[in-house]
Design a binder for these strands. Sequence first.
DNA 1: ATGGTCGGAAGCCGA
Length: 266
Amino acid sequence: MTTLTIASWNINSVRLRIDTVERFLQEYQPDALCLQETKVVNDQFPDKMFRRLGYEHLAINGQKAYHGVAIVSRLPVQAIEAREFCNKGDARHVAVILPGDIELHNFYVPAGGDEPDPEINEKFAHKLEFMREMAEWFEDWPQGSARKVLVGDLNVAPLEHDVWSHKQMLKVVSHTPIEVEHLNRAQAAHGWIDVARQFIPPAEKHYTWWSYRAADWQASNRGRRLDHIWVSPGLENAPTAFKVAEQVRGWPQPSDHAPILASLQV
DNA sequence: ATGGTCGGAAGCCGA
């Protein structure tokens, strides 16, 4: 038995915030870090800092300016094929196998634009389609004892207390019933377990993202839980800790997302 | 009640 700590963070440009990522790795020491919105092509991924800190094993799936995901690990990983969703050529998924035969999937679900109507908003339609495809993919996976972890910016805050005001957010993209339904379906398709809510009671407010637009994000505290860590049924009893590194949101020139971390006894 | 801020292929578009 060994403890594995996995972190997930929407970094909103890994090149701009490379020093912030370094500070995070030094202070929090995860075994693997899953990044979203790296916004850089693979050729230009800033891998030197990661290697210097001992994160020598990288799986990257980037594109120019938008999206882009990466997994950096200090444990050896076996790369597995990244899936392209919705035939759009977007880099929104990357996956590896960690020691102990643990499959780790890193997702960046489309944000979905402003208007929560798939008829008039193509970006919202894409978001729903993406989650539908996730569900279909997971349904094709063999159930059973396989050990899998799914992390990422899923861009949906599914529970009432995943947003600062359930009532005021019902028509706001990220908390609409149709998005929650799609996310729940993807989650149920593999029996994924929501690690954060194993540790933080569902009746307690819990956020991972705070808008840049607030004058004082901490004072207004109008957050949303957009970032998630799920484990497959074979790892249901593995999680020993979960936290949001909320302090990181307060560091200079921050991402609008805080990193999240889960420790697993595997 | 509205608009507020970021990052990058910038002077707009997506978040």
